[in-house]
Nucleic acid binder design. Structure first.
Length: 415
RNA sequence: GGAGAGGUACCCAAGUGGCUGAAGGGGACGGUUUGCUAAACCGUUAGUGUUCGUAAGGGCAGCGAGGGUUCGAAUCCCUCCCUCUCCGCCA
């Protein structure tokens, strides 16, 4: 949620920011109108209540007094109903307004306009035509799409043998690195979350169709551990000296992938269920920009250790996620597709989520303010496995195990 | 799933319709005393949200959450959430 005061006082800046990401300005203006109306109605109600409180009788009121009190009470009731109506509208409008990009975010309309920041590792050269991870994995019998189609449906997969083992190895490896080298606290959260949490991190109300809701309940299958790790701190005031908070979790995530029919239909790039190691930071506002760089470096460190070639792009305004003010995507090289594909997304939300979820901090002088939230994948596990299979393939269809993973896998090669 | 008990401020806890935005205790903080510490005594201690205001400073809300009854609700009624105890079932 944007700071309502910011919208009131810096209208032009807000307008410019929202416009840059393609948000329809009539929605903004509608919100502004509602906000003005809401404040007027609020004042009216509060004046009535003030009057009531001033005239409150000490004990039992006389008949005459009672008559007057009833009149006021009725006025309050009517005014309150009118206020509630507008309040609901203004709240809804506010919850549907996206965050404003920070200054350094390049203007652009789509993926095409994202800014490449850096590349790491050369693109591997193969003396043969590299195969897709799906072809390789199915032949090796480590990924089983047929069973998944039968038991569940499309966009699900069974890992088998070293396919199952590598997924587990990667989760352990990633968590070990993040907890040991980069000092995150490891969390094992529920993967089922309630609507309030989904609202806090911005999955609701706008993106309900992207997640699975458990029938007849207020529960959702979490689409990302960002939801759990951020909402853990909902409605809390954290002492300044405890910041930054760094937490990580390896969880299973569930997404409907509505509207992606036909995209990435083969392989494990886009699944309804996947594992991800998530990194979440809570930061003092003045440090969040620096913390985003750290977060990015923490995510990158996994790819470096696995010796996978990647690049980092800074998302343009039009490609930013709803809550994000600034996002770096890390894209790993997929030889079979001859391109880089997203494997991590590292974002700073400023106080946007903190406002929704009421996550604040107390400064040394006692003042309380919203903190900044950040998160990033460190990394998407299935995609990492796919990238390893493709980048480490041999001509005979066997796959070398990256050195960093050999201890976790117990083998040097999968064949 | 069945039966019961609860949720009040940093913690414990009193409070069953107006004098309660809240007794009492603990803790914390400040002070008196003391060579220092402890003890004792005195004092302070709802943070917060929101709105009006350049500000100073007002207003309103707030006793798990949301509704309702009432001139008036921590207190009565309804729904929901959470915690605990016992029984049943279970990885």
């Amino acid at each position: 949620m944007l700071d309502p005061k910011l919208v009131r006082e810096k209208y032009e800046a807000v307008k410019k920011g929202l416009e840059s990401r393609g948000y329809p300005l009539e929605f903004l203006d509608k919100y502004v109108q509602l906000d003005i109306k809401w404040r007027q109605q609020l004042q009216a109600l509060e004046n009535l209540k003030c009057e009531r409180n001033k005239n409150a009788p000490e004990g039992k009121p006389s008949e005459e007094q009672l008559e007057r009190l009833k009149v006021t009470a009725n006025k309050i009731k009517v005014q309150n109903e009118s206020l509630q109506l507008i309040e609901q509208q203004v709240r809804e409008a506010a919850l549907l307004m996206p965050n404003i990009p920070v200054e350094e975010v390049p203007f652009g309309e789509s993926e095409e306009d994202n800014l490449e920041i850096k590349r790491y590792g050369g693109v591997p050269e193969f003396s043969f035509k590299p195969e897709s991870h799906q072809e390789l994995a199915e032949r090796l019998g480590i990924l089983d799409f047929e069973s998944a189609a039968k038991v569940t449906g499309s966009r699900f997969v069974f890992g088998r043998s070293f396919g199952a083992r590598m997924e587990r190895a990667l989760i352990n490896f990633m968590l070990d690195v993040q907890t040991t080298d980069n000092s995150y606290q490891e969390i094992l959260p529920p993967v089922v979350v309630n609507s309030k949490s989904m609202l806090g991190t911005g999955q609701l109300p706008k993106f309900a169709e992207d997640s699975f809701q458990l029938a007849g309940t207020d529960y959702w299958l979490s689409p990302t551990a960002e939801v759990q790790l951020t909402n853990m701190f909902r409605d809390m005031i954290i002492p300044e000296q405890d910041l930054p908070v760094n937490v990580t979790a390896g969880t299973t995530c569930f997404r409907k992938e509505a509207g992606t029919y036909g995209r990435d239909i083969s392989g494990i790039i886009r699944q309804h269920q996947f594992n991800k190691v998530e990194l979440v930071k809570l930061s003092k506002p003045e440090e969040s920009s620096e913390q985003l760089e750290k977060l990015l470096a923490d995510a990158e460190s996994i790819l470096k250790k696995l010796k996978l070639p990647y690049r980092v792009v800074l998302l343009c305004s039009g490609d930013l996620g709803f809550c994000s003010a600034k996002t770096y995507d890390i894209e790993v090289w997929f030889p079979s597709q001859d391109k880089y594909r997203e494997i991590s997304s590292c974002s700073s939300f400023l106080d946007f989520q903190a406002r929704r979820a009421m996550i604040r901090y107390r400064k040394a002088d006692g003042e309380v303010d919203y903190l900044h939230t950040l998160n990033g994948s460190g990394l998407a596990v299935g995609r990492t496995m796919a990238a390893i299979i493709e980048n480490y393939q041999n001509e005979d269809g066997s796959i070398n195990v990256p050195e960093a993973l050999q201890g976790y896998m117990g083998v040097e090669i999968i064949k």
